[in-house]
Protein backbone atom coordinates (compact mmCIF):
# COMPACT_ATOMS: atom_id res chain seq x y z
CA UNK A 1 0.00 0.00 0.00
CA UNK A 2 2.73 2.40 0.96
CA UNK A 3 4.65 1.42 -2.11
CA UNK A 4 1.59 2.06 -4.23
CA UNK A 5 1.07 5.44 -2.66
CA UNK A 6 4.66 6.36 -3.24
CA UNK A 7 4.40 5.27 -6.82
CA UNK A 8 1.19 7.20 -7.40
CA UNK A 9 2.58 10.28 -5.72
CA UNK A 10 5.69 10.10 -7.77
CA UNK A 11 3.72 9.60 -10.92
CA UNK A 12 1.29 12.46 -10.29
CA UNK A 13 4.06 14.89 -9.36
CA UNK A 14 5.98 13.86 -12.38
CA UNK A 15 3.12 14.22 -14.83
CA UNK A 16 2.32 17.66 -13.49
CA UNK A 17 5.76 18.86 -14.49
CA UNK A 18 6.61 17.04 -17.69
CA UNK A 19 3.45 15.62 -19.19
CA UNK A 20 2.46 12.15 -20.25
CA UNK A 21 5.74 10.69 -21.39
CA UNK A 22 6.32 7.25 -19.92
CA UNK A 23 9.02 5.93 -17.67
CA UNK A 24 10.92 9.14 -17.50
CA UNK A 25 12.71 10.33 -14.40
CA UNK A 26 15.96 8.98 -13.10
CA UNK A 27 15.34 5.55 -14.58
CA UNK A 28 13.77 4.37 -17.81
CA UNK A 29 12.12 1.01 -18.23
CA UNK A 30 10.79 -0.20 -21.57
CA UNK A 31 9.10 -3.45 -22.46
CA UNK A 32 8.99 -5.04 -25.90
CA UNK A 33 7.62 -8.34 -27.16
CA UNK A 34 8.64 -10.09 -30.34
CA UNK A 35 7.54 -13.28 -32.05
CA UNK A 36 10.25 -15.73 -32.99
CA UNK A 37 9.58 -17.33 -36.35
CA UNK A 38 11.55 -20.05 -38.03
CA UNK A 39 11.83 -19.54 -41.77
CA UNK A 40 13.31 -21.84 -44.37
CA UNK A 41 16.11 -20.24 -46.34
CA UNK A 42 16.71 -20.98 -50.02
CA UNK A 43 19.76 -23.08 -49.20
CA UNK A 44 17.61 -25.43 -47.12
CA UNK A 45 18.74 -24.26 -43.71
CA UNK A 46 16.41 -22.66 -41.26
CA UNK A 47 16.80 -19.30 -39.66
CA UNK A 48 15.06 -17.74 -36.71
CA UNK A 49 13.71 -14.24 -37.06
CA UNK A 50 12.27 -11.90 -34.49
CA UNK A 51 9.20 -10.16 -35.79
CA UNK A 52 6.78 -7.60 -34.54
CA UNK A 53 3.80 -9.53 -33.10
CA UNK A 54 1.33 -8.76 -35.83
CA UNK A 55 -0.38 -12.12 -35.69
CA UNK A 56 0.02 -14.36 -32.68
CA UNK A 57 -1.62 -17.75 -32.20
CA UNK A 58 -1.29 -20.46 -29.56
CA UNK A 59 2.09 -22.13 -29.72
CA UNK A 60 3.93 -19.09 -30.97
CA UNK A 61 7.27 -18.34 -29.32
CA UNK A 62 7.53 -14.91 -27.78
CA UNK A 63 10.66 -13.06 -26.76
CA UNK A 64 10.21 -10.42 -24.08
CA UNK A 65 12.82 -7.67 -23.79
CA UNK A 66 12.92 -5.31 -20.83
CA UNK A 67 15.40 -2.47 -21.27
CA UNK A 68 16.49 -0.29 -18.39
CA UNK A 69 18.65 2.79 -18.23
CA UNK A 70 19.64 5.17 -15.48
CA UNK A 71 19.09 8.52 -17.17
CA UNK A 72 19.46 10.50 -13.95
CA UNK A 73 22.59 11.88 -12.40
CA UNK A 74 22.57 9.79 -9.26
CA UNK A 75 23.34 6.17 -8.69
CA UNK A 76 20.30 3.95 -8.11
CA UNK A 77 20.81 1.23 -5.56
CA UNK A 78 18.74 -1.84 -4.65
CA UNK A 79 17.59 -1.98 -8.24
CA UNK A 80 14.96 -4.69 -8.76
CA UNK A 81 12.97 -5.47 -11.93
CA UNK A 82 9.75 -7.47 -11.70
CA UNK A 83 7.70 -8.83 -14.61
CA UNK A 84 4.48 -10.77 -14.07
CA UNK A 85 4.01 -13.45 -16.71
CA UNK A 86 0.91 -12.77 -18.81
CA UNK A 87 -1.56 -15.53 -18.04
CA UNK A 88 -1.81 -16.62 -21.65
CA UNK A 89 1.96 -17.13 -21.84
CA UNK A 90 3.97 -20.04 -20.49
CA UNK A 91 7.43 -19.07 -19.26
CA UNK A 92 10.16 -20.61 -21.37
CA UNK A 93 13.42 -19.51 -19.78
CA UNK A 94 15.69 -16.51 -19.78
CA UNK A 95 18.88 -15.68 -21.58
CA UNK A 96 21.12 -15.80 -18.51
CA UNK A 97 19.22 -17.75 -15.88
CA UNK A 98 19.90 -15.02 -13.33
CA UNK A 99 16.24 -14.52 -12.52
CA UNK A 100 14.22 -15.45 -9.49
CA UNK A 101 10.74 -16.80 -10.15
CA UNK A 102 7.52 -17.07 -8.23
CA UNK A 103 4.90 -19.75 -8.78
CA UNK A 104 2.38 -18.29 -6.33
CA UNK A 105 1.59 -14.85 -7.61
CA UNK A 106 4.68 -13.15 -6.21
CA UNK A 107 4.52 -14.25 -2.59
CA UNK A 108 7.54 -16.53 -2.56
CA UNK A 109 10.62 -16.33 -4.74
CA UNK A 110 13.46 -18.62 -5.65
CA UNK A 111 15.17 -20.52 -8.41
CA UNK A 112 12.59 -22.58 -10.29
CA UNK A 113 14.23 -25.87 -9.31
CA UNK A 114 13.75 -25.06 -5.60
CA UNK A 115 10.04 -24.26 -5.75
CA UNK A 116 7.18 -26.66 -5.20
CA UNK A 117 3.46 -26.61 -5.96
CA UNK A 118 0.93 -27.76 -3.38
CA UNK A 119 -1.35 -30.52 -4.60
CA UNK A 120 -5.00 -31.01 -3.79
CA UNK A 121 -4.16 -34.37 -2.19
CA UNK A 122 -2.04 -32.65 0.44
CA UNK A 123 1.34 -33.39 -1.13
CA UNK A 124 3.35 -31.21 -3.42
CA UNK A 125 5.31 -31.50 -6.63
CA UNK A 126 8.25 -29.77 -8.22
CA UNK A 127 7.26 -26.55 -9.97
CA UNK A 128 7.70 -26.39 -13.72
CA UNK A 129 8.14 -23.47 -16.04
CA UNK A 130 4.40 -23.62 -16.79
CA UNK A 131 3.74 -22.69 -13.14
CA UNK A 132 5.76 -19.48 -13.19
CA UNK A 133 3.66 -16.42 -12.42
CA UNK A 134 6.34 -13.77 -11.91
CA UNK A 135 9.95 -13.09 -12.77
CA UNK A 136 12.30 -10.92 -10.77
CA UNK A 137 15.86 -9.75 -11.17
CA UNK A 138 17.75 -8.47 -8.12
CA UNK A 139 20.75 -6.41 -9.10
CA UNK A 140 23.45 -6.84 -6.60
CA UNK A 141 25.35 -3.77 -7.67
CA UNK A 142 24.26 -0.14 -7.85
CA UNK A 143 23.16 1.21 -11.19
CA UNK A 144 25.32 4.22 -11.81
CA UNK A 145 24.23 7.22 -13.84
CA UNK A 146 24.12 6.39 -17.53
CA UNK A 147 24.26 2.62 -17.01
CA UNK A 148 21.84 0.52 -19.03
CA UNK A 149 21.08 -3.03 -19.93
CA UNK A 150 18.37 -5.38 -20.91
CA UNK A 151 16.68 -8.47 -19.61
CA UNK A 152 15.39 -11.09 -21.99
CA UNK A 153 13.01 -13.91 -21.32
CA UNK A 154 11.03 -16.22 -23.48
CA UNK A 155 7.49 -17.53 -23.42
CA UNK A 156 5.10 -19.64 -25.47
CA UNK A 157 1.50 -18.60 -26.13
CA UNK A 158 -0.65 -21.14 -24.31
Amino acid sequence: MIRGLVRTAFFVAFCAVIGPAYAQGPLQLASDVFVEREIAKPDGTKAKLLEEPKTVVPGDQLVFVVRYKNVGTATASNFVVTNPMPRAVRFDGTADGAELVSVDGGKNWGALATLRIAQSNGGDRAATSADVTHLKWNFNQPLSAGAEGKLIFRGVVR
Partner: peptide, 27 residues
Protein backbone atom coordinates in the same frame (compact mmCIF):
# COMPACT_ATOMS: atom_id res chain seq x y z
CA UNK B 1 -1.58 -10.69 -23.75
CA UNK B 2 -0.47 -7.69 -21.72
CA UNK B 3 3.09 -7.39 -20.54
CA UNK B 4 4.45 -4.81 -18.18
CA UNK B 5 7.63 -4.72 -16.17
CA UNK B 6 8.21 -2.71 -13.02
CA UNK B 7 11.39 -1.66 -11.28
CA UNK B 8 12.14 -0.47 -7.79
CA UNK B 9 15.28 1.27 -6.66
CA UNK B 10 16.55 3.62 -4.00
CA UNK B 11 17.04 7.18 -5.17
CA UNK B 12 18.30 10.16 -3.19
CA UNK B 13 14.65 11.00 -2.46
CA UNK B 14 13.76 7.53 -1.29
CA UNK B 15 12.51 4.26 -2.75
CA UNK B 16 10.90 4.59 -6.16
CA UNK B 17 8.81 2.21 -8.26
CA UNK B 18 8.38 2.72 -11.96
CA UNK B 19 6.46 0.76 -14.56
CA UNK B 20 7.41 0.16 -18.12
CA UNK B 21 5.07 0.70 -21.01
CA UNK B 22 2.43 -2.02 -21.40
CA UNK B 23 2.72 -4.16 -24.49
CA UNK B 24 -0.64 -5.52 -25.60
CA UNK B 25 -0.81 -8.38 -28.09
CA UNK B 26 -4.12 -9.81 -29.15
CA UNK B 27 -4.18 -13.57 -29.60
Amino acid sequence: IQNIASATFDSPVGPVTIDSNTVVIKV
